[in-house]
Simulated scan of single mutants.
Amino acid sequence: MPARAALRNNRLATLPDSIRLMRELRQIDLRGDPVTTLPESLITLPRLEKLDLRWISTLDPPRWFSELEATGCVIYL
């Protein structure tokens, strides 16, 4: 079963940089959270396949998103 972090609708503004330690994480769902920043360390997650950021109007997509997509991660904005 894929490792998931379903964190949607929890009023999160960011994720801790320590998320980089979750090496088996495949999906992160932050839909509806008022996210303003994300740690660049998400790029280092080797199995991350999906980053769901739909329904978020508070985040300007960072430049490193293209690097994350290049690793095979699909980003839903």
Rank of each mutant, 00 (worst) to 15 (best):
M1D: 08
P2T: 01
A3G: 05
A3W: 06
A5I: 02
L7C: 01
R8I: 01
N9R: 11
N9K: 14
R11Y: 12
A13Q: 15
T14N: 13
T14R: 05
L15I: 06
L15V: 09
P16R: 02
S18V: 11
I19H: 10
I19R: 04
I19F: 13
R20K: 14
L21I: 04
M22A: 15
M22Q: 15
R23N: 04
E24N: 14
L25K: 10
L25T: 12
R26G: 15
R26Q: 15
Q27T: 14
Q27V: 14
I28K: 02
L30S: 00
L30Q: 04
R31P: 00
R31F: 03
G32N: 03
G32C: 02
V35Q: 06
T36P: 01
T36N: 09
T37Q: 12
T37R: 10
P39Q: 00
P39I: 03
P39G: 01
E40W: 01
E40R: 15
S41Q: 13
T44N: 06
T44A: 15
L45R: 06
P46Q: 00
P46Y: 03
P46V: 00
R47P: 01
L48S: 05
E49R: 10
E49N: 09
K50I: 08
D52N: 14
W55T: 10
I56W: 12
I56T: 03
S57C: 02
L59R: 09
L59Y: 12
L59E: 13
D60Q: 12
D60K: 15
P62C: 05
W64P: 05
W64N: 12
S66H: 06
E67M: 06
L68K: 04
L68P: 07
A70K: 10
T71C: 05
G72R: 01
C73Q: 04
C73H: 05
C73D: 04
V74N: 09
I75C: 06
I75W: 03
